[in-house]
Each structure stands twice: as C-alpha cells, then as structure tokens.
C-alpha cells in the first residue's frame, strides 16, 4: 500500500551542489548592500545635524557663514561629474576605451574641482574661527560634510586606479564590473549631496 502510494508520486530532486555562477555575478548586489549600509552612516550624521544644527553656543550662524553661490557652484560640479560618469559607462558599453578614459578623466576633473571648493570653504571657515570646536552646530556640520568629502576623496583615488586598469587591461569584464561599482558609488554620493545642500545649506540659511 505504502509502496504504491510512494510510487505514484513524482520523484523530487534537490540540487544541493552550488551552481556555477559567472565570476563576479553577485558583486553588484553586494556592492549595493554596502551602499545601503553607508546610507545608514549618513542617516545618523543627518540626524546629528538635525539635533545640533541650531545649537550655535552664541557663535556664528549658518546665515553668517555659508556662501550659497559657492555651494551652488559646488553642486554643479558634482552634477556635471555624475553626467560625465554616465557617459563613460555608455562609452564602455560601446567598447570604446579611449572615450571611456576621456569621460572618466572629465569626471575626475569635476570631482577634484568639487573637493577643491569644499576645502577652500573649510579653510575659510577655520580662518574665521568657525572650526568644529566652536559649537555643536559646527561640529555636526564638519562631521557630515567632511564625511561626504572623504567619500569623494576615496572615490577619486578609486577612479584614478580604475583609469590605470582600463588603460592597461582594456574593457575586460572584470574592469567593466569595477566601473559599474564605482558608477553606483559616485551617483550615490551625488544623492547624499542633495540631502546636504538642502538640509544643511539651504534650510540652514533659511533658519
């Protein structure tokens, strides 16, 4: 009885061996998860800014310190770099190594310009005595904007290394994968900057 019942059931097979996945098949998902955890770091820094952003301790206020024209130029630099990176990715899709390297170089120039303007702004603030030790407002400002700037710095280092790799090895799958990871990283930093210029600079000046 039991044997006939078992015999009518279709046998089920479970494949317990790991499948052969192409190299780097899970890299993009893994990198996305890293970006999401990075997003949580920035969320904490934004929360700190939200709490401390108006604790001036009798010191200078955002309205006195922030130069919105400079911030607008800075925002434009980062936005241009996002566009040029996108064009680099399209060039790599079309397997044009020279164009890819050209757009990557343009991205690096815009990224470096962004960083240069930010460092100029920081040195200007420090010169005016508005360093991170002045008030909780400035501590949280330097932590949040500085962390973003550090990310851009490491993005630039990564970009330079990738340009060397693409120049040497060409647009092989491994290099294209690395370009895609940096693409996510770079555009992600631009998304964070939207939060920075809105909540730190624009709303700070409005307060």
């Amino acid at each position: 009885m039991a044997t006939t019942a078992a015999g009518t059931e279709a046998p089920a097979f479970y494949d317990l061996d790991p499948h052969e996945h192409p190299a780097g098949g899970s890299t993009m998902l893994g990198f996305w998860l890293y970006l999401m955890s990075d997003c949580l770091i920035f969320a904490m820094l934004f929360a700190a800014w939200g709490v401390y952003g108006s604790a001036y301790a009798g010191g200078p206020t955002p309205k006195e310190l922030f130069d919105l024209k400079l911030v607008a130029v800075n925002t434009a630099m980062l936005l241009f770099s996002s566009l040029t990176y996108g064009l680099a990715m399209i060039a790599s899709d079309e397997d044009r190594r020279g164009a890819t390297l050209g757009w990557l170089a343009a991205t690096a120039v815009f990224g470096a310009a962004f960083l240069g303007i930010e460092l100029y702004e920081f040195s200007h603030l420090l010169h005016e005595g508005a360093g991170p030790q002045r008030s909780a407002f400035l501590s949280s400002f330097f932590t949040l904007v500085g962390t973003h700037g550090l990310h851009v710095t490491f993005g630039l280092v990564w970009l330079a290394v990738l340009m060397v790799q693409v120049a040497r090895g060409g647009l092989i799958p491994a290099n294209v994968r690395r370009l895609q990871c940096l693409s996510l990283f770079w555009h992600f930093l631009d998304v964070i900057w939207i939060g920075v210029f809105t909540f730190v600079y624009l709303l700070g000046v409005l307060r």
């Binding site: 098949g25 993009m28 990715m89 996510l184």
Partner: peptide, 18 residues
C-alpha cells in the same frame, strides 16, 4: 544579471531634471 544601464538620452533627461 549585469547592472542595468541607461542610454545617452536617459542620462541627459536625468541631468536636465536635476
């Protein structure tokens, strides 16, 4: 499985909106 990618047009639309 590869990351989806845009076209010149989609990047330019995104840029203009931004």
């Amino acid at each position: 499985g590869g990351a989806p990618h845009g076209t010149r047009k989609s990047y330019l639309i995104g840029f203009a909106l931004s």
